[in-house]
Simulated scan of single mutants.
Amino acid sequence: MTDEDSARLGLPLLAAGQAQKELWHNEALTLLDLAVQATVEEINRNAPPAAPQPGQCWIVGGTPTGAWSGQAGAIAGWTVGGWRFVAPRAGLRVRHLPSGQTAVCDGSGWRIGEVRASSVLVDGVQVVGARAAAITVPTAGATIDAELRGCVDAILIMLRKHGLIAS
């Protein structure tokens, strides 16, 4: 980034008295078109596709080749003018079209399909909150009811499997 680029997305800025400002302005709009509400065809692809369509984007893998060399982790977008790249920055997020999952750049790489929240609400009602402490599996008692114990065990297994309680 230089003083001629915006701080967050590295968009080219106009300078006072600059000739051909439309070129800089159009380049900034092209990069915004790739980064705002971004969607990607594939994540961690290292080689450019053979026949990209204008507006299609990919997240470049860790060992890029060809026209993508030196752009590891960037969003690569095909435009009428060729490849454009939006550098990865913490907080940048894209939607992976084939899976519908979200990928978020954490500053060191892309985290795919993770949802981070302190709770999940459905129709305004909290249905999932923070993980609770482990629940002890019953092992004995004055009266042993095998059917009830099996049911409780199954419930505990599923709660652990879904990460709602600790093991």
Rank of each mutant, 00 (worst) to 15 (best):
P98M: 05
T136C: 08
D106S: 07
R8D: 05
G141H: 10
R84H: 06
M158G: 00
S119P: 09
R84T: 07
A90E: 12
R89C: 05
E114H: 09
N26I: 12
G163V: 13
T139Q: 06
D153P: 04
A19E: 15
G113P: 05
V80P: 08
G109C: 08
T63S: 12
T30L: 07
L97K: 13
D33V: 05
A15S: 13
R149T: 11
L156I: 14
Q56Y: 04
A76L: 08
L29I: 15
A117V: 12
I157C: 03
V104K: 04
L92S: 02
G66R: 11
E22L: 10
R111T: 11
G150R: 13
V80K: 13
R45D: 00
S108M: 07
W68H: 00
A47Y: 06
K21L: 08
S119H: 15
G163L: 04
V94T: 10
T102R: 06
I144V: 14
D145H: 04
P12A: 07
Q71K: 15
V128Y: 02
L159D: 06
L97C: 03
G70F: 06
A16E: 14
S167P: 15
P12V: 04
E27H: 08
G55K: 06
M1K: 10
W83I: 04
G81L: 09
N26K: 12
A90C: 12
V94M: 08
N44P: 01
Q53H: 05
P52W: 01
A72F: 10
I144R: 08
A140M: 12
A134V: 14
A140G: 13
W58I: 05
T143V: 15
R111W: 10
G109W: 07
G82Q: 07
L159Y: 05
S6M: 08
G62Q: 12
R95Y: 14
D123S: 13
D3A: 13
P54D: 07
A87P: 10
A134W: 03
I75E: 01
R111H: 06
V36C: 10
G91M: 09
S119L: 11
V137E: 13
E4S: 11
P12T: 02
P64T: 04
W78V: 00
E41K: 13
A51H: 13
R95T: 15
Q126G: 03
R84V: 04
R116H: 11
W58G: 01
L121K: 14
D3K: 12
T63M: 09
V152N: 00
N26C: 12
R45C: 04
W24S: 14
T102Q: 07
R116C: 11
Q18L: 00
G150T: 15
T102V: 15
L34P: 01
S118P: 05
A166L: 14
V127A: 02
T136K: 13
F85L: 06
A154R: 15
V40G: 00
V137W: 09
G107A: 03
A16I: 15
L164G: 05
E27F: 07
L29G: 00
A90F: 02
G70H: 00
E42S: 07
D106M: 11
V80W: 11
T2L: 09
D123Q: 05
I155H: 06
R111V: 11
Q20Y: 11
I112C: 05
Q37P: 03
G150N: 14
A166D: 15
Q18S: 03
G124C: 01
H96G: 04
A103H: 02
E22C: 02
A133W: 05
Q71D: 03
I135F: 10
H25C: 09
H96P: 02
I43L: 08
K21S: 09
M158D: 15
